[in-house]
Amino acid sequence: MKDIKIPFLPRIEEEPARKIAEAFLKRNGYLQEGANFMRLPINVEILAHRVGHPVEVFDDLQSKFDCKGTAYNNKERKRLEIYIDSDHYMNQANSAPFTIAEELAHIMIHSSIFTQIETPEDRAQLETNTRESTRRVIEKQAKCVASELLLPSILFHQYLTAWMQKNLKSILDDRPNDEDDLATFMARKIAAEIGLSEMIVKRAILRKLDTNILGDLTARFGIKYIKDVPRNASISG
């Protein structure tokens, strides 16, 4: 049985992840000045192809190897590819792009691990034989970068600004109790508009970056949370 070696993992949390993803996207012709923030999410499947990591769809990846997707070293073609389960890809259209983004993120930041993955069994091995805490770090780092690849902060901020402006009345009518409540409400609406899952969008809304996007926007639009409003006072901004 193959022993997957895990190298030292540098600390990559939300803000460094944003910088890594942003630099990667810019290097590959995305996020140019005037980029259309209404064209979110970034089509990571096309992006992956363009940077030389094609997405391939396989039957039974999930049922046989308990794996929705994996980065995979195709030695014959001398490149890392992204394999995704066909059922997940076709039937979970709002979460499959995140799976692809996560695997692309692994290729970007964990290539020394994923060049060792040469069969789906190797990926299963990585899941089962890696210490839980290490595995969590690897997954969390990939998720942070993936979120920034799909919904880059720089564009998502503009998107949210326009969205809040347009939907201010419904936000106020919803009377959010706190930041999390507001993020849930917005995620539900936006997820339906852009074809991603609520969880992915909420995560993007609540990203802990140098700039607190949600805090910044609620201040700008004068949105108050119920918990912060004195009894009998009006909640609207």
Partner: peptide, 8 residues
């Protein structure tokens, strides 16, 4: 890919 069309 030229047409930005996914496999789906």
């Amino acid at each position: 890919i030229e047409r930005e069309m996914t496999l789906r």
